[in-house]
Design a protein around this nucleic acid. Structure first.
Lengths: 220, 220, 220, 220
DNA sequence: AATGAATGAGCGTTCATTCAT
DNA sequence: TATGAATGAACGCTCATTCAT
């Protein structure tokens, strides 16, 4: 079941048409500023100025900066969640589905927005429990898809084993953000790494629990 | 040879014993505050207060906040670099050496300091070129060790292939920080994942370049 | 036509009645402080305190100290410019008009405000081009009146000669500020000097271009 | 009788050779900075840095900024005073002597140093009695020479009349500083004005007290 | 005679927030 | 729904000055 949490907007705002427009504009502008300049430079005054309104009016919609930030993050996170939903039925073939999901994340991580956004999110999640929860909710959606497709690829795996693989794989891919992401030093190698990594995780999924794997372990 | 960069401290400071003590205290306090509260709350006044000195005196040692931050990051990064140096000759057995290096990083990432520090570093590196360079220098050291040990484990690999593997493996491990790090939601699964991940990357290293691997690629 | 330059006040401020009052109070207080204590002691905080407002609110009206100073100088300079306009048609008799203009300036220079203000202005104009321009604009107005009245008194003079006389005369009078101005050591002799100087320049104007004058030049 | 005032330097300093050198260097550097950047930017730290010493050592020589400023102004003023002394016997011919003195001042006023220095001095004299006294002492020297030469040119004038003329003439010339001085808007006209002004004042001196002058006065 | 070390006040400015209109 | 007006704390930084060494 999905969270029932309402927006952090002041209750009673965004009821008329102009108000709804303004509320949307605030979020769009704030999102853009957050991506471009980061959390520390995302001030109420800048958002208000960029959205063409007075600080007073911005406070009317969002009583505190924290409220606005919460909605902003929710906004972005919800976007990812719905993109993951879209990916659910991307292919009938399980392996192709696996490649599609990981490929999407890997490609997305190299966009300017994502390369800049996610590290900021990780920092915030380290200091704020609510943000950590929202972030975890998003990653849980992502992993749920992986768990399903891993189950299709290798039906012999236990639920636990599947969850561990999903976590390991998703974490590994996230880790590439600051190395092959936008403007990052190894960006040029992203394409090559992408395929090696995905095929390699696919093989891991397929072979986990097999005698072969045991043999490898025995080889130590 | 190590970087020749001098400290960003004002020249002429920290010459007497009391000055050296103060300079050290500043770095220690700043490091602690950075870890505990993050970059955005690391203000000159807070550092001064926490170090029991006047803002004026802090400015005497570090003319600008950026200078202090630079030294602070350098300080932490240099610590990692020397730890990596220590790991170089950790074991005679190549595979054990591989496990030792990755194991160290994986364990370190779960400490409170590292879980909090690195995401902040990634954010800063996204916005500041100098910081990005220092960070890359540290990761390069780390990967250089991996490249060597990968070469020992699988001598048939080209330099390029080894570098790609080192990048992929190190990035993957870094990615676990915000999932199984200190106070992170899947911290309890860290131990299990650690071994699976390391053994799995070890197998990847050993089998890369073999017919099996080629078959997989062909299978797409 | 007068300058089109808008105020350096933040746009959108001083729209309501209270805001207009505040804006006026800022300029009045700043002007008083500037006169009393000089440019170097004219700080944002002092102005705010003297005007009974918070530093934040002062910054709301004037984003920077330079903006406030600009408006303050403009304010004072505009006052002089309009006083000069008033002097234009002071008398039908050209010689009386000449005496009126110079007399006004000479008397004004002995007021406390002027004796303190103008040297500060000269210093600022030496370091800031915009201020130099505004000052020159004011003096140009002053000299334009002199040029006209000199033309009436001695119609035989060329434009250039008239301009030179106006510059020489006005500069000479300004120079008395720090000798016979308010609280200056020779203040008591101001009245006597005033008449000698004015009559003497009047005679110069009348006799310039005459044989006598030529003889003097030849005599060198 | 001349003032017995010693330097404002801390007593006991500048006794050894190195100390004397340092004391001189401080004054030279401070003078240069004062000219280049003005009084408001003349800080102890800047002087110390420019003189290649620590702020602590500068304070050893000059306990307070005011003391240093006092010596600096004295230093510059004394320079002018001795230049005036030199001018005393510049020529045997009284009129030439008159031209030499005024010509010197007029030419000097257009140098960068003087154009920048004197307005600063006038501002300081407006706020500080001691500085006002020193300045007056210098101008008194200057006028004393004028009084003498005026007496030679027109022996019929009373002491008072001569003093008034000297004050009027010197003040008038000073007033040209901010109009035809260095980088000032009418600098190009300085040469022409210089001669007109000097000859004109010479004529005034010669004709003061004559029937002609009386006629002019009567003409009002 | 000179330095490094330190203070504490003050600077201009930005900020989140509040409130009357 | 929106603005202008205002607060007060905090920011990074500079300053004159003091003092031990």
């Amino acid at each position: 079941m999905q969270s029932q949490r309402a927006s952090m907007r002041r209750t009673g705002t965004a009821t008329y048409a102009t108000g709804q427009e303004t509320a949307q504009r605030i979020l769009d502008v704030a999102r853009r500023l957050f991506m471009e300049e980061g959390h520390s430079k995302l001030t109420m005054r800048r958002i208000a100025k960029a959205a063409g309104m007075s600080p007073g009016n911005l406070s009317y919609y969002y009583p505190t900066r924290a409220d606005l930030l919460a909605d902003l993050l929710q906004h972005v996170i919800d976007g990812y969640i719905s993109q993951f939903q879209t990916l659910r039925g991307a292919s009938d073939d399980a392996e192709e589905q696996f490649r599609a999901v990981l490929g999407f994340v890997f490609d997305d991580l190299a966009t300017r927005e994502t390369t800049l956004f996610f590290p900021e999110l990780w920092v915030l999640a380290n200091r704020d429990d609510w943000i950590a929860q929202q972030m975890e909710k998003m990653y849980a959606q992502y992993r749920a898809i992986l768990v399903d497709v891993i189950g299709l690829i290798n039906p012999g795996l236990t639920e636990t084993r599947r969850a561990d693989l999903a976590l390991m794989i998703s974490a590994s891919i996230e880790g590439h953000t600051m190395f092959v992401g936008h403007d990052r030093p190894h960006r040029a190698r992203a394409g090559k790494l992408r395929n090696v990594l995905i095929e390699h995780f696919l093989r891991l999924v397929k072979e986990t629990g097999e005698p072969h794997s045991a043999k490898v372990t025995a080889g130590r």
